[in-house]
């Protein structure tokens, strides 16, 4: 067994699909419970135990759900890039699974970021949408996620899909900063920078606390959902393999 072989490295053992199913089983419930605690605490802080901003008033509370999703939108793509390198260099089946399951989650979190950002923009900037650099590149990012999801659905065999999609994920990673740069260049209109500067370390602690707790809550949520989705994807592949085997054995023995 790979899982018991001391000569196989720690991370290789963790990543062996059978062993992964084993250890991740015991991770999901505790992580989900911790995540629920963080959410309860974060929402309590966000609504009842944090002051209104001196400039934005109570609308600053939207930041506590908007900014963590903006972070996850980037983080999920980072996970996909690392997993894609794993697919291409080590041809690791678990890396394929990780890349595939991170894409829908990333798209969801990007959508949440865009929607909450638009609703936040109405009272702060007076409009739901401006074609500024940050908003526009977030929208493009959403469509990169959706394109990758569409590509996964286009392939019949997820094993054959992994490497081409890993390549396009890495090409996307090269292009995202260029797109960001070009969109910033395209729109040189000054935007209220206070929105993003509010995410910096100069914030008062009373606003930083709910933000950090919500960061923790959403990051934990991503980890739990990603682990669960990876386990489901492994089960789905095992189902396909079992069905193929059953079909073969039935074809081999004439009724």
């Amino acid at each position: 067994m790979i899982a018991d072989n001391p000569r196989v490295g720690f991370f290789s053992r963790l990543a062996q699909p059978g062993y992964f199913l084993d250890w991740s089983r015991h991770m999901i419930l505790p992580l989900a419970a911790l995540c629920a605690v963080f959410f309860a605490l974060g929402l309590w802080f966000a609504f009842f135990n944090s002051p209104a901003d001196y400039q934005m008033g109570n609308t600053v509370r939207i930041m506590y759900i908007h900014v963590p999703n903006a972070w996850l939108s980037q983080f999920a793509y980072g996970v996909m890039v690392v997993a894609s390198i794993g697919s291409l260099v080590w041809r690791h089946p678990l890396a394929d699974v990780a890349a595939k399951t991170a894409a829908p989650l990333g798209a969801t979190f990007t959508a949440i970021m865009l929607i909450t950002g638009a609703i936040w923009g109405r009272p702060t900037w007076g409009t739901y949408w401006v074609w500024d650099g940050r908003l526009t590149s977030s929208l493009v990012h959403l469509f990169i996620y959706l394109g990758i999801i569409a590509l996964w659905r286009a392939f019949d065999d997820p094993v054959r899909a992994a490497r081409p999609i890993a390549i396009i994920t890495l090409v996307g990673a090269i292009n995202i900063p260029i797109i960001k740069f070009s969109v910033d260049w395209w729109n040189v209109l000054p935007q209220p920078a206070s929105v993003i500067r509010a995410g910096g370390p100069t914030m008062p602690a009373a606003i930083l606390t709910p933000l950090l707790v919500m960061f923790g809550a959403y990051t934990l949520l991503f980890l739990v959902l990603h682990l669960a989705a990876m386990r489901t994807e492994l089960a789905r592949r095992r189902i396909t393999a079992l069905q193929a085997r059953t079909a073969r054995s039935q074809a081999g023995t004439p009724a």
């Binding site: 209104a52 008033g57 109570n58 609308t59 509370r61 939207i62 759900i65 908007h66 999703n69 989650l105 969801t108 959508a111 949440i112 929607i115 909450t116 609703i119 936040w120 109405r122 009272p123 949520l221 959902l225």
Partner: peptide, 22 residues
């Protein structure tokens, strides 16, 4: 605050999408 409608709808949209993902 007159902006509570925006705050409530932002959280309603964000959290319902989160719940949908779960």
């Amino acid at each position: 605050d007159p902006n509570w409608g925006f705050i409530a709808s932002a959280y309603a949209a964000g959290l319902s999408l989160t719940l949908a993902a779960i």
